[in-house]
Design a protein around this nucleic acid. Sequence first.
DNA 1: TTTCGGTACTTTGTTATACAAGGTATTAAA
DNA 2: TTTAATACCTTGTATAACAAAGTACCGAAA
Lengths: 124, 124
Amino acid sequence: METNTIVENSRTQMRRGVLEYSILLVLRSGDEYASSIIQKLKDVDIIVVEGTLYPLLIRLKNLGMLSYRWEESPQGPPRKYYMITDKGREQLSELDATWQELVKSVESIRNASLLPPAGDTSNL
Amino acid sequence: METNTIVENSRTQMRRGVLEYSILLVLRSGDEYASSIIQKLKDVDIIVVEGTLYPLLIRLKNLGMLSYRWEESPQGPPRKYYMITDKGREQLSELDATWQELVKSVESIRNASLLPPAGDTSNL
DNA sequence: TTTCGGTACTTTGTTATACAAGGTATTAAA
DNA sequence: TTTAATACCTTGTATAACAAAGTACCGAAA
């Protein structure tokens, strides 16, 4: 087996960390139903599966961040289109700030780690 | 209570996602022991506690990403200084790429969500 | 020589979350 | 009336972070 390298594992964890945020971002662009959210995220290499998404959408709805409406499908059963609420928009804008702070945090330690250690005299 | 807003919760998840990566970044800058890692991460607002860090360091060591040496402390018990191994460096460079891809992914849906929806004719 | 404060490392039990896998329901067309 | 496609939902499991408590070391003061 050994498909689970540390790298693959860490990548998964990173994706998970931004999952909720990503879903809200997608819905800020427009109303979507579960499968289309999955597809949009897949398009940018953020993998989610149904079993993860459905409970998450329900949780966000229960928190008042999302609401939904039923809409006929051209083929098959009706679709549950989720849309972001006003409250959702407010919180999302806070998450925008959170995300940017996180990027800044990581970049700062990342940049530090790409330079020789402070006090390194190995070149003298 | 209600200290657990959705925003606070999401922030926590984001932090968790980059935890492992962040620890490796810190150690790429130089050898550190647990408390000093916690401090360095705290400095950039990435909160970790002992109960999280110790098991994680042990896991990374068992995977061959880290090794450690004991070193006397000016005061108190000896410290376990962790250092990144060659293998750890290799994997970390892959994580650098992973991180940058994730940032790109999120930014792309984020930027999309800040523009009016495609096909929006509300201004005509 | 014992106790105490500070520091450091470790473990245990709980909780949250993602996911695999399986289930139900709707539709239209064969 | 079966089948295929689509969509929604649930259950059980594994993993990971965390709170909390425990162990151990050290030096200095009592």
